[in-house]
Design a protein around this nucleic acid. Structure first.
Length: 223
DNA sequence: GACCAGGCACATC
DNA sequence: GATGTGCATGGT
């Protein structure tokens, strides 16, 4: 079908432009989960600072992080912004890990993806994107991650209507791409790369590789 | 100084 | 169900 081809062409173009992204950066599944929360509406540079501080304090494993009091944790993650909210979100994630697998993340391998996703989004502070990032990059589940850039790109190029929901965006990709975990991982990463450079609230169309595949965007108002 | 970042929850209409 | 607002630091 037409969309299948267009999406794969887009992916090939992006990969050719930016190279394989090897996402998610992080040494352990837990580090990936922590990063997924810390990066909410936040530049990755700031997240790296916070992760580095957590590592310095040996706090990048569930038990050690749980042992920090709120003020200590907030201070370590301060560079990411929203540090009061995010410290609570991290604490809730760690609590949940304790309840479900006693902090042994390998035990989550037994769980069906749907159930894991339901559990994750039921935690306050973990929405659809954060849950899916955790599922895809920390737990290696075949889930396509949708973010602001994915939204802008598809809407500006009229692949979907403005106002489409998270699930609609997800289906656009899962319905039209091969069932391939590594493709899901790298495609999302590529969309972020091109998004940062070209798909900002006010588009920076000059030299955008997306245009070469999907044509000129219809210039909607900023979002 | 303004704009923006790899969101989410909650209030209000 | 759509729309608006608070959360907060740091880079460009």
């Amino acid at each position: 079908m037409l969309l299948d081809r267009a999406l794969m062409e887009l992916y090939e173009k992006l990969r050719e432009t930016y190279g394989p992204q090897r996402w998610w950066p992080g040494d352990t599944a837990f580090e990936v989960m922590v990063g997924a929360i810390l990066t909410q509406n936040t530049n990755w540079n700031n997240v790296e600072k916070a992760i580095g501080r957590l590592k310095e304090h040996d706090a990048l494993e569930p038990e050690r992080l749980a042992a920090l009091n709120d003020e200590e944790l907030q201070e370590l993650i301060r560079p990411t912004g929203y540090f009061r909210q995010k410290s609570a979100r991290l604490k809730r994630l760690v609590w949940w890990l304790g309840e479900t697998c006693d902090g042994e993340l390998e035990l989550l391998d037994q769980w069906p993806t749907d159930e894991l996703r339901q559990e994750l989004v039921s935690l306050r502070g973990i929405g659809p994107e954060t849950a899916d990032s955790i599922l895809l990059y920390a737990l290696e589940r075949k889930v396509f991650v949708v973010d602001t850039y994915t939204n802008r790109i598809t809407v500006r190029h009229e692949l979907l209507d403005p106002g489409c929901g998270y699930h609609d965006l997800q289906l656009l990709f899962t319905d039209h791409l091969p069932d391939d975990l590594e493709l899901y991982k790298d495609f999302h990463a590529q969309l972020v790369q091109v998004g940062k450079r070209h798909c900002r609230p006010t588009p920076v169309c000059d030299g955008c590789p997306v245009r070469e595949v999907l044509g000129e965007p219809t210039l909607e108002e900023d979002f």
